[in-house]
């Protein structure tokens, strides 16, 4: 593992976006920051700005009103970046599956790297999900990530 990979592993700055979640998963994410789980041990910091973030944690099934926000946030993040869908809703739409106002999962809008199951997802699972994602992040090439444009095109199609 070279230095850059190691640094990427050890310094995940996390952005959290609630795309219509019931707040169950959100509370579990915040509990990761507390003394009990203390994800800052791994260098993780909860940031409020996509331009500073490496990891996007999304909760909720994504509906038609916040879809553009999610896409915008994702695009504002610098490469390399990973997306972790936290909870059942974010992974597949959950109980909102096929609901008329919901798109049914984060991967309908942006490419997702890790799916964290659970309703709500447990903090331990979230942390494990992030670390899984980080391993992927560390291995990402120095050049801009391939396939991003295709992913966008796909999601635009899915929207139609």
């Amino acid at each position: 593992m070279n230095l850059i990979q190691k640094a990427r592993m050890k310094s995940p700055w996390v952005l959290h976006f609630n795309a219509g979640s019931c707040n169950g998963c959100d509370i579990e994410i915040l509990s990761c920051l507390t003394p009990v789980y203390d994800i800052e041990r791994f260098g993780a910091v909860n940031v409020g700005n996509p331009k500073h973030a490496d990891v996007l944690l999304v909760t909720g099934p994504v509906n038609r009103r916040n879809e553009r926000v999610l896409r915008n946030l994702y695009e504002q993040m610098l490469d390399p970046k990973i997306v972790v869908a936290v909870g059942t809703c974010a992974s597949s739409g959950g109980v909102f599956h096929n609901c008329y106002n919901c798109l049914g999962g984060v991967d309908k809008v942006i490419p997702v790297d890790v799916y964290v199951p659970g309703c709500a997802a447990k903090p331990e699972t979230i942390i494990e999900g992030v670390i899984l994602g980080l391993e992927k992040l560390a291995k990402m090439p120095a050049k801009a990530r391939p396939g991003r444009q295709e992913a966008k095109a796909e999601s635009a199609e899915a929207e139609r």
Binding site: L3, I4, K6, A7, S11, D38, R41, F42, G43
Partner: peptide, 26 residues
């Protein structure tokens, strides 16, 4: 002080390297 373990002492160094390796500065 907040009852947490906290990051390693060299954490700022890793932050710096990671930021330098980010692509597509905006």
């Amino acid at each position: 002080l907040q009852g947490r373990v906290g990051p390693p002492l060299t954490q700022p160094f890793y932050d710096l390297v990671k930021l330098l390796a980010k692509q597509g500065d905006t």
